[in-house]
Write a protein that binds this DNA or RNA. Structure first.
Lengths: 337, 337
DNA sequence: TTGTAAGCGTTATCAT
DNA sequence: ATGATAACGCTTACAA
């Protein structure tokens, strides 16, 4: 592979001149630029980004650290981030932490060592504490999860509000004994739990069981089975992400529980399958494209100006009413035909 | 951030010695090593991987270039690759090409420029030609897609055989007018088409329509609608990946076509939702974990020994029989109770 | 066992 | 407008 020296030699100029041509510097004779460009083309030269990065102490890469790459919510974000970064000539290094604080630290270190220009990150709750006292200077945008910090920008849903809306929707559709399943690793689970309780309180209802569990299909499945065995079993289940929703749905089907007539179901995040199953699942859809794009743009702004005050972008979810939460004859819609 | 010079100074040794300690060289006095390690800890030093990579002309990164990050098949592979790479101390740079040959070239260049040690890649058909005459020396493992080459290792399903098996399964369950939907960008679509035709031929059947289309949900949906409008409409549809399957399933539901009694359905790749819908979808499941691990291991072997002959690992899929392909009263199972 | 110094491929500073 | 040259942080001959 040809390097800048080869090009300089071939064009009869110095490496400095080649570098200037590459950087589109002003003071270059048209003829010289021509010769250099020819040499570059002839030798099929491409600058070595490693060397450039070492010299410049920065790079055209950003990191994206997510907690579960199998969660469609995060892959959708990944797509959006990649597209937005690509438009700016940046490439994206994607890492997967499995909600594991050790892996969080590892990958943040790796990314730092790779000289990434910045990081988009969905942290666990544990991370919050360590981040507070860290003095990392790497530009960072937190996504999806609430965090008290002025050292990073934030892009996320108003999770309390969204859970409140979803819970209220269930209540208005006649459900009274609502159980909730929330991810145990993230602030998001905690916030949605808060919105859930708040909505119940406004209608003088008690929760019919709350589980903070690992955000996986299997955990959702197991928790749903346990809920169904209770003597005063819930008449609806609210889930905090699509993996839990899938697990619960599977459990309901295996136990031949009729949805929504025996048990209603509502959750978060739009998925391929949520619309395909019977009944289609009611969810709060998150604007993944917008979250990803906004996070990327904020990151670029912060990279350019590391000292700007932190922005907090709070987005709204969109309630997509399926049939999993609407009984054939809902008490509140007695004449609904 | 402290560098190797700072550490050397703090420990009262040369940078070479620090480097040797880091590399676990043999000839170091225990006491010296101790001092160096202390300095490293005290200064919270971590080697700059960029500099190391520039010097060593290689890195502990590998690239994973997939054609659609939203396809659960590829995210599953991504997980497996990441786990396997992580165990070897490598990090994974994941890129998304959208089946676009231009993006393929771009990302392969990017990865090359990033000094990755090797690449795991699911290429389009177009790539095959250009790869043939390229003389890239970057270690490469091709996944998921057949390719005639001895310059890269290969890990994929026997797609002809798998499609043959799936088609035969449909035939044995009484379906006679089977249509096929295949991805138009990949050799995999082509191979599965071949297996499909072969199985039909063995039973003296004609295909009931074949579409080579873009592997997206929407394309599958549109193609299914067209098939359903035909005067001699198919009694079964075979799809070549899970995005197409989702589109077809949605179309069948929207048109209130009964599955499998009016139209049977079978496809590729195990997904969350495939088991949750009614009826559950019959698929050939691919061993994604094994594909990812094997590809990663082959890549490491090739990195260590670039001149070893190319391996071709051909795996078998597993038929997971759902109800989407089994009629209540199948002609071949007349007494099946 | 340890140190010195060259060099990986760039870019930026300072000359000219 | 262009060229020499010193860094960026690390590894590795070669010397001592």
């Amino acid at each position: 592979m040809a390097n800048i020296k080869d090009v300089a030699q071939a064009a009869g100029v110095s490496t400095a001149t080649v570098s200037r041509v590459l950087a589109n510097h002003v003071s270059i004779r048209v003829e010289t630029r021509q010769r250099v460009l020819e040499a570059i083309a002839r030798l099929n030269y491409r600058p070595n980004l490693i060397a450039r990065s070492l010299r410049a102490q920065k790079s055209a890469r950003i990191g994206l650290v997510v907690s579960d790459i199998r969660n469609p919510f995060f892959t959708a974000i990944g797509r959006a981030v990649e597209d937005a970064a690509y438009e700016q000539g940046y490439s994206v290094l994607m890492c997967n932490t499995d909600e594991n604080p050790e892996k969080e630290e590892l990958y943040l270190n790796v990314l730092h060592d790779e000289n990434v220009a910045g990081v988009i990150f969905s942290p666990t709750q544990q991370f919050g504490a360590s981040f507070h006292q860290s003095n990392s200077k790497i530009p960072m945008v937190i996504i999806d999860r609430q965090m008290e910090t002025d050292k990073a920008d934030l892009v996320l849903l108003d999770n309390v509000l969204a859970a409140h809306e979803l819970t209220t929707h269930l209540i208005q559709n006649g459900f009274r004994r609502i159980a909730g399943l929330f991810g145990d690793a993230s602030a998001t689970g905690r916030d949605r739990h808060a919105g859930f309780l708040q909505a119940l309180g406004e209608h003088a209802l008690q929760d019919a069981g709350v589980h903070f569990i690992s955000p996986r299909i299997q955990s959702g499945y197991d928790a749903a089975l346990r809920l169904l065995e209770r003597k005063n079993r819930p008449d609806a289940i609210l889930t905090s992400n699509s993996l839990l929703t899938a697990g619960v749905f599977q459990a309901l089907r295996d136990k031949k529980v009729k949805v929504p007539d025996e048990v209603g179901l509502a959750g978060f995040d739009e998925t391929t399958w949520g619309q395909l199953v019977d009944p289609p699942i009611t969810v709060i859809a998150q604007p993944t494209e917008e979250i990803g794009r906004t996070a990327t743009e904020l990151l670029f702004q912060r990279i350019q100006n590391p000292d700007r005050p932190a922005h907090r972008v709070i987005l709204k979810g969109r309630l997509m009413e399926g049939l999993s939460s609407v009984k054939a004859k809902s008490p509140l819609h007695p004449a609904a035909d």
